[in-house]
């Protein structure tokens, strides 16, 4: 079953066309990786899946994106969309609040006020993000005091706390050391049974380690999209082959 159905999506920043006729079918309960050289539109595409592009002036979109059959650029409430499609950013961005308040921010936004319920959500989210053990004694401490890797897992937990259906991650490990990166990757593998995950990465080993499907982008176009194994072992397009064998910048 597909979670995102992208049909002929074009995106313009002013006069510049950043995405050109994207057609993709992203499957539920899978990890889909977006790879490609810098500036090819990976972040742009992932941001148009939860309409973060709405925040950018003179960004124009044509085409269709459906989330489980519902058009997201139609009548859908954008805040509800973002609740259903969570996002983790490249640079860990915990709020300048306590660990607890960081996690509780989302649920509170969506109307949960009862303390026991929030307690339970905080514990479950931190557990799901595999960081409960490290943080359970510092729930009241500022999240800014955590290490970069801990901050990023906290951000994953924060995204999970609103019970999204899809998780978008834009180079979530590019600012982290190998050990923290390993922890995030492990985490994503355990999460894919319950969530559909889309991850942007510059690291091709990472794509092969964790993703089921990979899409290769170049200059705003999808060059090749298929099962990760196939794409890396026998790429159809010459440009894909050049990129994965490292003959591109």
């Amino acid at each position: 079953m597909s979670c995102f159905d992208i049909k002929n999506l074009n995106l313009y920043y002013g006069d510049f066309q950043a995405l050109k006729g994207i057609n993709m079918n992203i499957l539920k309960n899978n990890i889909t990786a977006f790879i490609g050289p810098s500036g090819c539109g990976k972040s742009t595409l992932i941001k148009s899946l939860n309409r973060m592009n709405d925040l950018i002036e003179n960004c124009r979109i044509t085409g269709k994106v459906e989330l489980f059959g519902e058009s997201i650029y139609g009548d859908m409430d954008v805040n509800l969309l973002r609740k259903r499609v969570g996002m983790v950013f490249q640079k860990p961005n915990p709020f300048p609040m306590s660990v607890y308040d960081n996690i509780a921010f989302g649920p509170r936004t969506h109307g949960i006020k009862s303390k026991p319920q929030l307690n339970e959500i905080v514990e479950r989210s931190l557990q799901d993000a595999a960081i409960w053990g490290e943080l359970k004694d510092r729930l009241g401490k500022s999240a800014l005091g955590l290490s970069g890797g801990q901050q990023q897992r906290l951000c994953v937990a924060r995204a999970l706390a609103v019970e999204p259906e899809v998780l978008l991650l834009d180079e979530p490990t590019s600012a982290l050391d190998p050990i923290s990166t390993g922890k995030i990757e492990e985490l994503l593998l355990t999460l894919k049974n319950r969530y559909s995950i889309i991850i942007v990465t510059h690291n091709m080993q990472q794509a092969t380690r964790i993703s089921d499907y990979t899409a290769f982008f170049l200059l705003g176009e999808v060059i090749e999209f298929g099962p990760t194994e196939n794409l890396f072992s026998m790429p159809v397009d010459k440009r894909t082959e050049n990129y994965i064998t490292g003959r591109f910048g």
Binding site: M52, N79, L81, R82, K83, G86, F89, T109, C155, A159
Partner: peptide, 15 residues
Amino acid sequence: VPDVWREGSFGLGAG
């Protein structure tokens, strides 16, 4: 105030 905090908040569905 860094924009990444605003993005984080919007990303969680906050208005």
